[in-house]
């Protein structure tokens, strides 16, 4: 039952992603869609940690940034092929996440949030100050992504790559959630003591999901470095981390499609709201507050609960 709805959801997403570029009037809209796609990939990974394992991370932009800068630096300074740089970045971030996960994930609640926040800020400071390597606040240009003589250029080409990667990420995430690991994670979320009593190795699962979500962020970051014309440290700073968490919570925790909707919605909203000029931040804040007050579980879970309740 769960698996049929999973395939239905994935199929619906695939159809949506295939049709979307046909209805977008010009490349500016495709660009926004690609940016939403990048955020969505990171958020789906982050949601595994926040929504399912119940652990908070305020440093995920740091992992995104580390992946992005690994790619940019290895490609521009050392002439690595982009794919190798991407894998090296993912490996680096995976190892780093693994090394810090054990001590960090022993912490709970606010202390855990503080520790991840600290890591994110350290990464951001290093990217800002090591200007000889990272280009400092002015950023660095990673150039186009190329693989075996084929060069990835233009918004539309990127769209298909990101759409494909998003589908794979969603497939992986939903798979993980429906597996024994997913059940262990939910048990952990419900009660860590309870989960331990029934024999779940809670630390192991927490570390696993932390590393998986960090690596997903790193891969998205690596590709983003090639997509953007100039990579700046703002993509790795504290506010970006907050933005990612907000996307997950806004769309609906413990719902992979919620994370998707949250990411897409919050990427588009500032673009739509530019017509209000100076009032933009007020309206953005109002929408967020309203959603949290009236839909505390987030957009997607609230709406889907409403729809299933109406159905006899």
């Amino acid at each position: 039952m769960a698996s049929t709805s999973r395939w239905a959801g994935l199929g619906a997403l695939a159809v949506f992603l295939a049709v979307l570029p046909q209805v977008l009037p010009n490349n500016y809209y495709v660009d926004v869609a690609v940016l939403a796609g990048f955020n969505a990939i990171v958020c789906v990974g982050l949601n595994l940690l926040i929504g399912y394992a119940g652990q908070i991370s305020l440093g995920h932009a740091g992992f995104f940034g580390l992946g992005a800068y690994s790619s940019a630096i290895l490609v521009t300074h050392y002439g690595w092929p982009p794919l190798a740089a991407l894998l090296a970045g993912a490996l680096l971030v995976g190892l780093l996440a693994f090394a810090i996960a054990r001590p960090i994930l022993k912490l709970k609640g606010h202390y855990l949030a503080m520790a991840t926040l600290g890591i994110g800020i350290i990464i951001s400071i290093v990217l800002n100050t090591e200007a000889q390597i990272t280009g400092g606040p002015d950023g660095i240009a990673a150039g186009n992504f190329s693989l075996g003589g084929f060069e990835l250029k233009g918004e539309r080409a990127w769209y298909w790559v990101i759409a494909g990667l998003l589908l794979v990420t969603v497939w992986l995430a939903t798979n993980l959630v429906d597996s024994p690991v997913g059940r262990a994670l939910r048990a952990l979320h419900g009660s860590e003591v309870g989960a331990e009593v029934v024999g779940v190795d809670t630390t192991r699962y927490k570390v696993l999901v932390f590393v998986v979500s960090a690596v997903i962020a790193s891969i998205a970051g690596s590709l983003f470095a090639h997509y953007t014309s100039q990579l700046t440290p703002t993509k790795a700073d504290f506010f970006k981390s907050i933005e990612l968490v907000t996307m997950v919570v806004f769309g609906g925790m413990a719902s992979t499609f919620g994370a998707l909707v949250g990411a897409a919605f919050l990427t588009m909203l500032p673009q739509v709201l530019t017509v209000f000029e100076d009032y933009e931040p007020i309206i953005l804040g109002g929408i967020m507050m309203g959603t949290m007050i009236f839909m505390p579980r987030g957009l997607v879970p609230t709406i889907s609960a409403f729809l299933t309740r109406r159905r006899p």
Binding site: Y28, D31, T232
Partner: peptide, 29 residues
């Protein structure tokens, strides 16, 4: 003042608003 925002707005000016000329860019970044 954010370079990444500037780049997405420039795309918007070119692709969507189809402007004839651009005057702007307060900072070097």
């Amino acid at each position: 003042g954010a370079a990444d925002k500037a780049s997405s707005f420039v795309k918007r000016l070119i692709e969507n608003d189809k402007v004839d000329v651009i005057v702007g860019g307060s900072t070097t970044g």
